[in-house]
Amino acid sequence: MIVLVLKYLLPKGFRGISLFPFIIFSERKSKENLILLNHEKIHIRQQLELLVIPFYIWYGIEFLVRYFQYKNWNLAYRNISFEREAYANEKDLNYLKQRSFWKFYKFL
């Protein structure tokens, strides 16, 4: 995992993004935000479990399904199983130590 700060690479409104093996933040102070960092680390684990490329395919398809379901970009994003898992567990800094394989599946 490599943490970078690249202000202009992220879409507007995003503070961080995980693109294996990188975690990219829009602001330097985000590197010290343990909850945000943990959220992105959860995504790195999800990407590894799905062998990276299938993760992005699944993520994109699930986003489209959720978008048609909710007719709202933000609701669609928040209800992707990968995001639901990450948001539900981002405050538990020990989560990745005890997380079971494919745990995101529980959030479908």
Rank of each mutant, 00 (worst) to 15 (best):
M1D: 08
M1F: 08
I2S: 05
V3I: 09
L4M: 06
L6A: 13
K7Y: 13
K7Q: 12
Y8Q: 10
Y8I: 12
L10V: 08
L10A: 11
K12E: 15
G13V: 13
G13Q: 12
F14M: 15
R15G: 00
G16M: 05
I17M: 15
I17D: 04
I17K: 02
L19T: 12
F20N: 14
F20T: 15
F22L: 15
I23C: 10
I23V: 13
I24A: 04
F25A: 07
S26P: 10
S26H: 11
E27K: 15
E27D: 15
E27I: 13
R28A: 15
K29L: 14
S30E: 12
S30G: 11
S30N: 14
S30F: 15
N33S: 07
L34Q: 13
I35A: 14
I35Y: 14
I35M: 12
L37T: 07
E40P: 01
K41M: 11
H43W: 06
I44W: 07
Q46W: 08
Q46H: 10
Q46I: 08
Q47N: 05
L48D: 04
E49T: 02
L50K: 15
L50C: 13
I53L: 13
I53E: 05
P54D: 02
P54I: 03
F55W: 11
Y56A: 09
I57S: 10
W58H: 10
W58D: 04
Y59K: 09
Y59I: 03
Y59W: 13
G60E: 07
I61V: 14
I61T: 10
E62R: 02
E62F: 08
F63M: 05
L64K: 10
L64E: 01
V65W: 11
R66F: 00
Y67F: 15
Y67T: 06
F68H: 08
Q69P: 00
Q69R: 08
Y70N: 07
K71A: 03
N74G: 00
L75T: 03
L75E: 02
L75F: 02
Y77Q: 08
Y77W: 09
Y77N: 09
R78M: 13
R78F: 13
R78C: 11
I80R: 05
I80Y: 00
S81T: 00
S81W: 08
F82R: 00
R84M: 10
R84F: 04
E85K: 04
A86M: 00
Y87C: 06
Y87I: 09
Y87M: 11
A88P: 01
N89C: 07
N89V: 05
E90Y: 01
E90S: 02
D92M: 02
L93K: 10
N94I: 08
K97H: 11
K97R: 11
K97Q: 12
Q98E: 12
F101Q: 12
F101T: 09
W102L: 14
K103V: 05
F104G: 04
F104T: 05
Y105K: 11
L108N: 04
L108Q: 07
